[in-house]
Design a protein around this nucleic acid. Structure first.
Lengths: 204, 204
DNA sequence: GCAATTTTTGACCGTTTGGACAAACGTTAA
DNA sequence: TTAACGTTTGTCCAAACGGTCAAAAATTGC
């Protein structure tokens, strides 16, 4: 039984694999896994399909590396929430960071949303394991802050959900947001406006 | 040029078309338009592919009727918000209704989310037209309430976005919510808990 | 009961899809 | 120069896909 040892990668392999990931993110985020084709990704990456399949053994493998990398970045901001810090400052920077992610990495957000809509077939274990653990921990921190009267009392889990929902909304439903806000308010400033609003909402 | 007159429909046609819509909603909501196949929908509806295509001329046509019906129901709750009513009561019932929709019609919510993620190719005009008009109108109502000191001051547009985002989150990201809440709190009561939390968030 | 109509089916078609493969091409280092 | 290795391409395949069609089966109206 020859184990699948991760081969040493050449410079070209590293570059091309990154290029493919970039292209695949674009395509998967818009059409989901089943709705995307290898040809689409290959074209977006400026190479032929067989060439792409030289770097990734199949469609699943491309998706897998994206999802894996996504989850690392996804949990990072919440991890940074520090029990020792000032509650309001901590919450405020968490909202800020989440909002910046919605602005700067909308495709990652949409990829995640797509996976959720499909019932999270590939990351359910991570959600029930790593994510749940992290949220349990941070919810306890928030609950503690609330008990000490340093934050308005509320359900800490739904508090976290609400921050997720509202911030990611500006990435996932960006079309709708821009359509409703129209020319004037739908410009670049919309993320800044949203961040300010959310700070008021969650920290009033 | 023979116009496509909407034929009179038999009882069977009405029933089967409804059955197909039901099946298609299930499939489209999970996989999006491109990710869904006619065969999948036909099987979910308990009929053969050619039989399904006897009732709808193609995949697009099925999707179109779903989207059309969806938009009507989607705007209804916001339409009911009444300027003459008590602001806090109006907001509270809007949140309640939206939350009930997330609980009772999660597939509709996911279908909508899927369309958004793909850039709303089929409903962008409606968003820029009908939806924007409605939101403009209701945002003005809310702004008025706020100016009169009957509601805490905030940006009315982002206020509405936040209600959409948080309520729909419990339908679209249901897997995640259940995974994080776990056995105990992830049961049927989660929608009620969420509704209570959101009332506090938006109205306190 | 029977003719007209509606519904269902199986067989089929052209295209797209994920993926395999060998051959050709390029690069490097002895 | 050449052998070894990494990269790219064109060709091919089987399965899945969206959709058509004629004919069979079921239903309806008289």
């Amino acid at each position: 039984m020859d184990k699948q040892v991760p081969r040493k990668r050449t410079r070209i392999q590293r570059e091309k694999r990154e290029l493919i990931r970039e292209a695949a993110l674009e395509v998967f985020a818009q059409h989901g896994f089943r709705g995307s084709t290898i040809d689409q990704i290959a074209e977006a990456a400026g190479m032929s399909k067989p060439n792409l399949l030289y770097y990734f053994k199949n469609k699943e493998a491309i998706f897998a590396t994206l999802i894996q990398r996504l989850l690392e970045n996804w949990l990072a901001p919440l991890r940074e929430m520090d029990e020792a810090g000032d509650p309001r400052t901590e919450i405020r920077s968490y909202i800020r960071r989440k909002m910046e992610m919605a602005r700067d990495f909308p495709r990652e957000s949409r990829l995640f949303a797509n996976e959720m809509l499909q019932g999270a077939p590939r990351i359910l274990p991570t959600l029930e394991g790593e994510l749940k653990e992290l949220v349990d921990e941070k919810a306890a921190v928030i609950a503690h802050w609330m008990r000490d009267g340093r934050l308005k009392k509320a359900d800490p889990y739904h508090f976290i959900f609400a921050i997720w929902a509202t911030t990611q909304h500006y990435a996932d439903f960006d079309v709708q947001v821009r359509a409703v806000l129209g020319e004037k308010r739908g410009g670049e400033g919309r993320f800044e406006d949203a961040a300010r609003f959310l700070e008021g909402l969650f920290l009033e």
